[in-house]
């Protein structure tokens, strides 16, 4: 059983580590975000993400889940509150600002590929921006492509690929830097169900193998239960955390898990949480 976020905060704050299973990788404290037009996207969001966790942010649209993800990524600052990386060594944080960038990857809802560049060049991009030559990066790029099963499509252009394959390229690009934290903003929302299930499984296998920390934004109860070991349910207007569900089902999870009782129980629990979140949300 997981501890509640407040307990974990305390444990971390006192640095005694009595309850926390793993040190928090990233910790949000009372983070609020108000947009220029007055919309309160997030209010007082506090959340610790433990290293190695697969955390889903689940909530209705407008609950600030994407905003939270962007703040963690460093794409936009919080209006108030703080973001901390307790276990980050100074080596990881070259900028010295406590900012992210070094070991974070982001997967957007759209594949967000450069249409003029081949699959190889798209995956090569993060390394190219770091100053690596094409030759030096070759092995890493091909490894990343192989992880998503697209090593034979290296020379193709994005327009030649299906929606699912484009998303795989996008994931390969995120993996090529060997990130510690993978942020995914509804990555599979635009895909058909069969492709989504396949990508869910592939993502889980990679996560089990490499042990990154994943923060996964979704509006699908089923997806969040299937993938994650922790679901943060959020309410909208203002965006806030309303429930923190630990999904204590063992990995590896395969297709059978989708029909198991445990899965159904958690789906029911998450659905109810989402419903009550919708009730406390102001109407859109």
């Amino acid at each position: 059983m997981k501890t509640s976020p407040t307990d974990r905060n305390d444990a971390l704050g006192q640095a005694t580590g009595t309850v926390a299973k793993a040190p928090a990788l990233v910790s949000l404290k009372n983070v609020s975000k108000t947009f220029a037009n007055g919309t309160v996207a997030l209010r007082d969001m506090s959340l610790d993400i433990s290293r190695g966790d697969f955390v889903s942010l689940l909530g209705p649209s407008g609950c600030g889940k994407s905003t939270a993800l962007r703040i963690i990524a460093g794409l936009g600052d919080a209006s108030s509150g703080s973001l901390a990386w307790p276990v980050r060594s100074p080596v990881d944080d070259k900028s010295g600002t406590g900012g992210p960038n070094q070991d974070i990857s982001f997967v957007f809802q759209e594949p967000t590929l450069m249409p003029w560049a081949s699959v190889f060049s798209n995956v090569y991009l993060p390394l190219r921006l770091k100053g690596l030559s094409r030759t030096a990066a070759r092995e890493d790029v091909m490894d990343a492509l192989q992880m998503v099963g697209l090593e034979s499509s290296a020379g193709s252009y994005p327009r030649e690929l299906s929606g699912g394959m484009k998303m795989r390229v996008s994931i390969a690009r995120a993996l090529v830097t060997k990130p510690k934290l993978l942020l995914m903003d509804e990555p599979f929302a635009a895909l058909d169900e069969i492709t989504r299930f396949k990508l869910n499984n592939d993502l889980l296998h990679l996560w089990e193998k490499f042990g990154w920390t994943v923060i996964f934004v979704t509006h699908s109860v089923f997806e969040s239960v299937y993938l994650s070991n922790r679901i943060i349910v959020m309410a909208a207007r203002p965006g806030r955390v309303v429930q923190d569900i630990a999904v204590d089902a063992p990995y590896p999870r395969e297709e059978e898990f989708r029909t198991s009782d445990t899965y159904n129980d958690y789906c029911r629990q998450a659905s109810q949480a989402l419903h009550s979140a919708m009730e406390v949300s102001e109407p859109a």
Binding site: G74, L75, P100, N101, I104, L129
Partner: peptide, 20 residues
């Protein structure tokens, strides 16, 4: 989003101009 991606990977102005 591509601009965001470039920012996330710490691309310089010049890199953003030339590559994107």
């Amino acid at each position: 989003n591509l601009l965001n991606l470039f920012e996330l990977y710490g691309a310089s102005r010049w890199q953003t101009l030339v590559y994107l």
